[in-house]
């Protein structure tokens, strides 16, 4: 495989690791867009990312001032982000993250053998809840995906799906029973999605679950998951267990997708899969000229 040559993708910020999982001054290795990278935090917690260098192998102690050539870097939502090209403006906002009563945590970074766009499409699809997340996010016979709205936001270049509702037996760790749960989905980045769902603790507000996909190559990702929850009752390990249980159920479904890249041609797959938000997402990727992790539509 050759490296990524898609300029749209090369110029994006990507999360590559959780700050909390990164030990300061110890080298961690990862792969982004087929490029071997290393990263760490310095003594005051500032991240740095560089192209892998034999002088500083994974696990070694490093004096961060020795690394003279580094990649662009940002800290956002508990993760270290970098960019291999010319970084665009800021990383997309998630305003709720800064609300003082939120519990923000890195739920997991899990390797999945699928393209990023396939994983985003699955994240947007409510139809699989009763079959894949049985008795948690859905239950038969409540299988109907009710009518919802999808649009490209006027203020930002992102897809927004609203008025999504689904009956869920146990929507979160703070739930006490089944309820009709409201969802809002955002896709503010070709490889990231942010989902809002009515909070089990306070139905007037919404929990936030964000998926930041790090493409290792066109058919493999590291899926980083952020939770920003309204849940005073449960400790972190319980919230993480819930999210990892859900993601562990999605994993084999994702890994069995064929082809692993997402076809953008509207005729490529049956209409069942291509529901409204999936159609919007595919069109949006096409309009941006994205080629990495997808099978572009023939002109």
């Amino acid at each position: 495989m050759t490296g990524c040559t898609d300029p749209t993708i090369l110029n994006l910020w990507f999360a590559i690791g959780a700050e909390q999982e990164t030990t300061p001054c110890i080298v961690s290795d990862t792969v982004l867009l087929e490029e071997d990278l290393s990263f760490t935090l310095d003594r005051v917690g500032q991240p740095l990312v560089w192209r892998r260098d034999a002088r500083w192998p994974a696990g070694s102690v490093i004096d961060t001032s020795d690394v003279s050539v580094t990649l662009p870097v940002k800290q956002a939502y508990g993760y270290i982000w970098t960019c291999l090209g010319q970084p665009s403006a800021d990383i997309f906002p998630i305003e709720e993250y800064d609300e003082p009563d939120r519990r923000n945590l890195n739920a997991a970074s899990i390797g999945v053998n699928v393209s990023g766009p396939r994983a985003i499409e699955n994240f947007l699809d409510m139809g699989h809840f009763p079959y894949v997340h049985t008795d948690i996010l859905g239950v038969q016979p409540h299988t109907e995906v009710k009518e919802y709205d999808v649009e490209i936001s006027e203020s930002r270049d992102e897809i927004v799906a609203t008025r999504c509702r689904f009956f869920q037996p146990m929507a979160s760790t703070a739930s006490t029973g089944g309820a009709d749960v409201e969802y809002v989905y955002r896709v503010p980045h070709p490889y990231c999605s942010v989902l809002y769902k009515s909070s089990g603790q306070n139905p007037q507000r919404m929990d936030v679950i964000a998926l930041f996909l790090q493409p290792v190559n066109q058919e493999r990702v590291r899926a980083h998951m952020l939770l920003s929850m309204l849940d005073e009752a449960n400790d972190e390990r319980v919230m993480r267990r819930f999210q990892q249980t859900i993601f562990g159920q999605d994993k084999p479904i994702l890994e069995n997708q064929y082809p692993k890249k997402l076809p953008l041609d509207p005729r490529a797959e049956t209409p069942i899969r291509a529901d409204k938000s999936a159609v919007a997402y595919r069109r949006w990727l096409s309009s941006k000229g994205v080629t990495y992790g997808v099978i572009p539509a023939a002109n």
């Binding site: 699989h128 079959y131 894949v132 049985t134 990892q244 249980t245 859900i246 993601f247 562990g248 159920q249 994993k251 084999p252 479904i253 069995n256 997708q257 064929y258 797959e269 049956t270 069942i272 899969r273």
Partner: peptide, 20 residues
């Protein structure tokens, strides 16, 4: 557990989904 699916109709339905 997560990653393991039941036998029977639910499993069949899943196979149909991922094949689609």
């Amino acid at each position: 557990m997560s990653g393991v699916f039941p036998a029977g109709p639910a499993g069949g339905r899943l196979n149909a989904l991922s094949a689609a």
